[in-house]
């Protein structure tokens, strides 16, 4: 399983424009290429998950995630905000890098948790935030994932 396989075309945005937590979640969901009503439900579910505790894990990285019936398959998106967003992260610092994960309640392949685990592991690796800051294209981003064997 390679992480890059879960990113649909266009699911990487290196210039997020949002400035608030809610708006950045909406912007990330819009990268998934799903219909508007499903986007609304996913946004609500992501918010409910955030209400249990922020998915901002520190080092400028957040991994908002949820399962919902409106997601027909496991999908991942990545967004980068140069300015950073107050995401109520564990370390209290602004978040610049967002990995969004959505999945249906039941998946045949059951890859939701492994994907979440891989992203968490990748996020903890030394120097990752500098590399994420310097990438200039979707291809470079995907190559970075490959380089880290995730």
């Amino acid at each position: 399983m390679r992480l890059r396989d879960f990113f649909a075309a266009g699911a990487v945005n290196l210039d997020l424009e949002s400035e608030t937590k809610d708006d950045v979640m909406r912007e990330l969901v819009s990268l998934l290429g799903i219909d508007e009503r499903s986007r609304g439900i996913l946004f609500k579910m992501l918010k409910r998950r955030e209400n249990l505790g922020s998915t901002g894990i520190g080092k400028g990285i957040a991994i908002p995630h949820c399962r919902s019936l409106v997601a027909n398959e496991l999908r991942v998106a990545f967004g980068r905000s140069e300015k950073g967003v107050d995401f109520e992260a564990i370390d209290g610092k602004p978040v610049h890098f967002f990995f969004l994960i959505v999945a249906p309640p039941l998946e045949v392949s059951n890859q939701y948790l492994p994907v979440l685990g891989k992203i968490a592991q990748f996020s903890k690796e030394e120097g990752v935030e500098d590399r994420l800051r310097s990438i200039e294209s979707e291809d470079e981003f995907l190559a970075l994932l490959d380089e880290h064997n995730v």
Partner: peptide, 9 residues
Amino acid sequence: LEIQDLKSQ
């Protein structure tokens, strides 16, 4: 749908 998703969670 939301109730179901919350229960799944």
